[in-house]
Amino acid sequence: MELMDYLNQHFLSREQLIQAAQISRRQLLSYQEEGLMPKPSYQLESHLHCNSYFGPYRQEQSCEYYAKGYCSWIAVIQEKRHLAAVFQNFHDRYKARVAQLHDLGFRSGNPKFSAEISAHIETEWGHFIQGIYGLCTRSGLPEDIAAKELATTEIQALLEHKHLNPEQRQRLNLFVNLLDKSSALFAPHERVKSSRHRLVDRLRREFDLKTQSPACREHAGISSSLSVNTS
């Protein structure tokens, strides 16, 4: 039951999502068919077998789970309506978060966060619509996606060095903490294979990195309660 506990705590079922967003199941499917709304992050196929005084009973059911941040994303879809405008919202929010992180000291020399950022965001949009980022980020929204991708890119670049000097270790610690705040916890059966295990948990042990205090996280602008701009 660990999987169900995780999903029920950190995600919304399809029924919970449509109720919270005040839309119909048909509207949700329509948004997905139009390429506006991400696919579910998890799909469960359940086969129930029950025995009682009245005899055996079998039931099959399918459940979908979505990132909790998708309630606000549906609001974006309802406001913008058209694919180009919805994508532009994603693009602008992703780019703004990269710029914000740059100003806060989370800088990257990788061109996908500067000269090539528009092409990079188009690729990210594809992953977003497939439901991938609903699974591996805290909110599933552009802000967490940008933070996760920036942190992952810089951590991997630092790990290419055979030995890290004190400045590089400090930089590694900075980006590991950023990844920690933007990355999902992952379902129990996924954790050993997850980016969180490889790039947060394992690196903290290997390099004796320190977890940031809440006060430091707020100062660094990596609070988990990101403001959401739907403009």
Rank of each mutant, 00 (worst) to 15 (best):
P56W: 15
H120T: 04
Y53M: 04
V76C: 05
A75R: 14
G69I: 01
N51V: 15
T123E: 08
E64G: 02
T123A: 06
G109N: 12
G131N: 08
A67F: 03
R81W: 02
F128R: 07
E124W: 00
Q100P: 00
I117Q: 12
Y133G: 07
R93F: 01
G126W: 05
Q78A: 05
V86R: 05
A67Q: 01
A96M: 03
Y53P: 02
Y66W: 08
R138H: 10
E116I: 07
G131Q: 03
F54C: 00
A67W: 04
Q100F: 01
D92R: 14
R97A: 02
A96Q: 12
E116W: 13
N89V: 11
H82I: 07
Q88F: 09
F128Y: 15
E79G: 06
S108P: 14
L104E: 10
G126I: 04
C50V: 15
E122I: 06
C63F: 14
Y53A: 05
C50I: 15
R138I: 03
K80M: 09
I74F: 07
K68Q: 12
Q61R: 11
E116M: 11
F90Y: 15
C50L: 13
F54Y: 10
F113I: 06
F54T: 08
D92S: 09
Y57R: 06
I132N: 14
Y53F: 10
P142D: 04
Q130F: 05
K80S: 06
E79C: 05
L83Q: 10
R93T: 13
H82K: 08
E122R: 15
L104T: 03
I132W: 12
V86H: 07
I132H: 15
R58L: 09
F128K: 03
A99C: 04
R81M: 01
I121R: 08
A84E: 08
Y70S: 01
R93C: 03
Y70A: 01
G126K: 15
L83D: 05
F113G: 04
P142L: 00
C71M: 03
A115Q: 11
T123C: 01
K80L: 07
C136T: 14
S62T: 14
P142K: 07
K80C: 07
C71W: 10
L104Y: 12
Q88H: 13
H49A: 11
A99M: 06
H82R: 09
A67S: 08
H120Y: 14
A96Y: 03
A115N: 08
N51A: 08
A75F: 08
I74C: 02
L101W: 01
R81C: 00
I117N: 05
V98P: 05
Y65Q: 05
V86M: 02
A115K: 14
P111E: 05
Y57V: 10
A85P: 07
V86Q: 02
N110W: 14
